[in-house]
Design a protein around this nucleic acid. Structure first.
Lengths: 151, 151
DNA sequence: GTTCGTGCAAATCATTTGCAGATAG
DNA sequence: CTATCTGCAAATGATTTGCACGAAC
């Protein structure tokens, strides 16, 4: 089943993906300086950033706050970014690597550092809800704790 | 071990708790019309209410929005209420029955009805975090789904 | 009689919206 | 060229704050 032609396509696709401009085009979005810079900032960050943190890393490029919010919303809707709500009173955004699945976070109650966790809730939970008649089930799970550096 | 004296104390304590005024005094808080009404509204509701929903049920008593927020915050800090963040962009509050433990919710994505769930995450999750050096661990888990009435 | 709570008005913070001009494809 | 973005300014929604008065203990 696997042949060289397919393999080359795959390799090309990944190379493709690595180019911020192409990520946008693939989603049918125009490529602009703000969008490109924003995505590369979030790709590099590795953890979910707040709008304020993004703004700081965006220095060097002049941008408008409203456009930033609009861009974040559009990229989230287009599945390029994911919205992370850790109950802080504002949202965070992270680069949604298509190969890297659904995951959860711990946020340090002191330094606010965020760590990705390797586990998810038991499938029985959603099965329970399904049995109760719920559909299109999704969930949110996050932890707050003092990290080892802060204790 | 169990004797009548202890039993009577327990019974009295519960009777005590049922009086909204005494709940407040026990926490060292002054009893005021707004606080009393607020607590009884949330006690009766049984599910976490938004500030707007609380405001509607508070009709009959004239209150100030700022005072309502201050009261909600103070009662949450005093463990009379608990803050529920379902990622809606605003907070909800529910009466924190001392005997009724920590729990989680499903919110219907359409009608916003909220259901309490009978399960919690496996203890291994927090054990994992402890092993990684985290302390004072707490978590948030909630579900979003279309409820049976809405499908 | 203090301490604590409330009302009122103004402030703040995150986010959104309308609109007209600029830019990508 | 036309659809989509962006900048700017004003609007919105949730929540907070300062201050002086009023009520609870």
């Amino acid at each position: 089943m696997l042949n060289w032609a397919n393999l080359i396509v795959e390799v090309n696709m990944h190379t493709h993906h690595d180019n911020v401009r192409d990520i946008l085009h693939q989603k049918g979005l125009k490529s602009t300086p703000l969008r490109e810079k924003l995505i590369s900032v979030l790709k590099k960050a590795g953890s979910p950033l707040s709008v304020e943190e993004i703004g700081q890393k965006l220095k060097g490029i002049e941008y408008d706050q409203a456009s930033l919010f609009r861009t974040l919303k559009k990229l989230s809707e287009s599945q390029v970014l994911s919205v992370v709500n850790l109950g802080e009173g504002f949202l965070r955004y992270e680069y949604l690597c298509l190969t890297h699945d659904h995951h959860h976070h711990v946020i340090c109650t002191k330094c606010k550092s965020i760590t990705v966790l390797p586990f998810c809730i038991p499938k029985e939970f959603e099965a329970f809800l399904k049995k109760k008649g719920f559909q299109n089930i999704s969930h949110r799970l996050d932890f707050q704790a003092l990290c080892s550096d802060c204790s």
